[in-house]
Design a protein around this nucleic acid. Structure first.
Length: 736
DNA sequence: ACCTGAAATATTTTT
DNA sequence: TATTTCAGGT
């Protein structure tokens, strides 16, 4: 490693502290001790983290090699890496910066033997985990209606997040007894197949360190300084990790905000902040309270709202920026009206010369996105919905990955089962059931059981030959791809498995998209190879498979198109937008019905609202509907309590203009999604229409010009951006 | 294997 | 209401 950090001079040091406010400077230049930084929304948290790292290297003389920074999302890790790189000129290889899961994975790869894993262990994502649990339950004749697999999955993950193995838990009642039984079954199966789920990554690493003093000692010596982002989101296991590793002379800086704790429902322990003060004594406290993001009005409103929570550590954000515009509250007649209002405002915003991507619509639950989407579609305003199905979670991608996984480890039962008959090759349920049965009887993997069936002809000859064809295919593939580069491996697998042809033959837009996705998979692999860090060992395929499980694979293609952003308030955390809408501020929706019952849930909802509001930089617009269609019923809900908690002087109420026509009876006037319209105009397309192009993929029609052969269509493609196309030339297909 | 109709079911999400 | 999942028939 090049000691480029040695070249730092005193000038550099003062440079690090420039442009920081007092509190920030205090945090960045604090002496080497344990630090708790309570960083309010928009107070320059990431900045402090990055500058602190620079300071540690320049002023304290620490080697990047000894510093480790942990975040929760890949995005945050990436951002931090970029900023470190641009500030210090350090290659990101020099320092460990990553998510808890990413770090755990790296440690397990390096010490797979001590951790009791095989070299090619694979990672289960939550979908894989769910399928696995369901499969095991069926195998053991456990009633899925009485014990919903989802609940079992939740139980298992919750226990793992608390650091508990099935054997560590004593069952108190019938329910727990059964849950434990399934936990044990699952644990056993994962162990046998060398599969590791997300929680297991952390648990295994914890156990590895706990039980291997030499390994622990090595990393305790290596990681001298820890930085933890979003500390309020840590769970018990992650905290235990920190306590174990960050020991004996090592120092740690945690940055968090108790007011932004919105993940307690999945095990995050805000209490860890208080625990930290105890366990890591002595702790220096620093509060970052100056906000650089929002206007005075927005901040004032958010502050007043959050003051209604009585469980806070206490913190009041302030700003030097001006009051700004008042917060608008729109009382819509119904959800439809609300959606139209929002789209309308965004259009105005755009017409006033601003960018669409500066506007975000936030909501409590994903279900709300549909009606908004329809409104955007109808108005022909480009939008992007965040969340939902990710690239690596798509069924066809998971099929392809299952082939790769099986090729790596033929004993991977979940991969085997996933593709044994995909594409259909005459191995029906009966054959699969027999394979499963034999596997169970003789304690073999499905693959081994299939071999046995072949050898001993345990099924009718037609089934046996179908199975042997499959086995031969896999073996053939193993030989074929052995010497290929990763992207070519994937291409070859897609080709020889006939997976690609299978979808190519299929008609319709869905199949077309699947083909596109599959083709994109090899480019994703190519890109992955390029960015692969050299200091991490392991076969590229193994690395790539882990990558697909750990990274969502957010489409970066449409990052550049100018779109309004739609997302839940949860996924908006960490982001900021000049214009923010929060939709559906109604009792029962936000705060959500499910959270209303207990006090804690309500407090968390309020924090969520706080997070949502503090995303706004210039203008915040809140809205609620008096009537909302919910599960087919028209429900009348009172305006959210949160609206009453915002000071009047910050607010400007907007009432619908009289001339807005409100559909009296829903359904009658309800506008169908544009894609369902039959009355196209001359060119065959109308703005808002979803279309597909052979080369550019899916897109949305923005404008239509001219008629007949000369007609031109402007299409905003998801991946390729906005383009003008000759309608007669480009074979655009409409998407139903 | 594919189609069809009934039944279930509907917070928040990253890794 | 709308979507997804599943069983059963063809």
């Amino acid at each position: 490693m090049k000691p480029c950090y040695n070249r730092r001079t005193m000038e550099d040091i003062s440079h690090i502290l420039n442009d920081l406010n007092d509190a920030q400077r205090q945090a960045v230049s604090a002496p080497l001790s344990n630090l708790l930084v309570l960083a309010g929304a928009g107070s320059g948290k990431t900045r402090v983290l990055v500058h602190r790292i620079a300071w540690l290297i320049a002023a304290e003389g620490l080697s990047p090699f000894n510093i480790l920074a942990v975040t929760f999302t890949n995005k945050a890790a990436r951002e931090m890496n970029e900023r470190i790189e641009s500030m210090l000129g350090l290659s990101s290889n020099a320092m460990w910066v990553g998510t808890f899961h990413g770090l755990a994975h790296r440690l397990l790869r390096a010490h797979y033997q001590e951790a009791g894993l095989s070299q090619n262990f694979q990672i289960l994502d939550s979908d894989d985990q769910y399928r696995m649990i369901r499969r095991l339950m069926r195998e053991h004749d456990i009633d899925e209606n009485q014990w919903p697999p989802k609940q079992v999955q939740w139980f298992i993950n919750q226990k793992k997040d608390d650091g508990l193995r099935a054997g560590d838990i004593k069952a108190f009642d019938y329910f727990e007894k059964n849950m434990l039984k399934m936990y044990a079954l699952y644990e056993e199966a994962c162990f046998q197949q060398h599969l590791v789920d997300f929680a297991e990554l952390l648990l295994r690493t914890f156990e590895l360190m706990r039980d291997n003093l030499s390994v622990l000692d090595h990393y305790q010596k290596r990681f001298r300084y820890w930085l933890v982002d979003e500390f309020q989101d840590t769970n018990r296991l992650q905290y235990a990790w920190l306590k174990l590793l960050c020991h004996s002379g090592n120092k740690i800086m945690v940055v968090g905000d108790d007011d932004q704790s919105i993940y307690s429902w999945r095990g995050a322990q805000v209490e860890n902040i208080r625990r930290f003060e105890e366990d890591f004594k002595p702790v220096t406290h620093i509060r970052l309270e100056q906000n650089y993001r929002s206007t005075g009005t927005i901040l004032n409103a958010a502050n007043t709202l959050i003051e209604n929570n009585n469980d806070r550590m206490g913190k009041t954000l302030w700003t030097e920026s001006s009051e700004g515009e008042p917060i608008s509250i729109y009382a819509a007649f119904n959800d439809l009206d609300e959606a139209r209002f929002i789209v309308d405002k965004i259009k105005q915003w755009q017409h006033s010369g601003r960018l669409l991507r500066e506007a975000a619509v936030l909501y409590r639950s994903n279900a709300q996105s549909r009606i908004l989407e329809e409104a955007f579609l109808q108005a022909g305003v480009p939008y992007r919905i965040h969340g939902g199905l990710r690239f690596y979670e798509r069924a066809e991608i998971k099929d392809a990955l299952a082939y790769l996984r099986l090729l790596e480890n033929t004993n991977n039962d979940s991969a085997f089962e996933r593709i044994i008959n995909v594409p259909v090759r005459g191995i029906g349920n009966r054959s699969v059931a027999t394979i499963r049965e034999i596997a169970r009887e003789s304690g073999l993997s499905l693959w081994q059981a299939a071999l046995k069936i072949m050898d001993e002809s345990l099924l009718p000859s037609r089934a046996v030959s179908a199975i042997s064809a499959f086995i031969e295919l896999i073996q053939e593939l193993q030989v074929q791809i052995a010497d290929l580069k990763l992207p070519d491996k994937i291409k070859q697998v897609l080709h020889l498995s006939t997976l690609l042809d299978h979808y190519r033959k299929e008609r319709g837009e869905k199949a077309r998209a699947k083909v596109e996705n599959l083709e994109e998979l090899s480019s994703a692999a190519a890109q992955f190879i390029e960015e692969l860090r050299e200091d991490v060992d392991g076969d590229p395929l193994t690395q790539f498979l882990a990558h697909t499980a750990l990274e969502a694979g957010e489409g970066q293609a449409d990052k550049f198109t100018d779109c309004a952003q739609l997302m839940t308030m949860h996924s908006a955390k960490g982001l900021e937008f000049p214009l923010v809408f929060i939709a559906g501020l109604e009792e029962g929706l936000f705060p959500h019905q499910m959270s209303l019952e207990d006090q804690k849930g309500c407090l968390e909802e309020r924090r969520l609202c706080y997070v949502g509001m503090t995303r706004a930089m210039e203008k915040l617009i809140l809205s609620y509907a008096e009537v909302r269609a919910l599960y087919g019923r028209e429900t009348y809900q009172a305006p959210s309590r949160f609206l009453h908690e915002i000071p009047r002087e910050c607010v400007e109420e907007i009432r619908p203009r009289a001339k807005v026509t409100i559909p009296q009876s829903r359904g009658f006037h309800k506008p169908k999604p544009v894609s369902k319209f039959k009355d196209y105009d001359a060119a065959g397309f109308r703005p808002g229409q979803l279309v597909a192009h052979a080369k550019f993929g899916q897109g949305i029609v923005l404008a239509v010009e001219g008629e007949g052969d000369g007609a031109r269509v402007q299409v905003n493609f998801k991946k390729a951006g906005s383009k003008w196309l000759l309608q007669s030339f480009a074979k655009l297909e409409t998407i139903a």
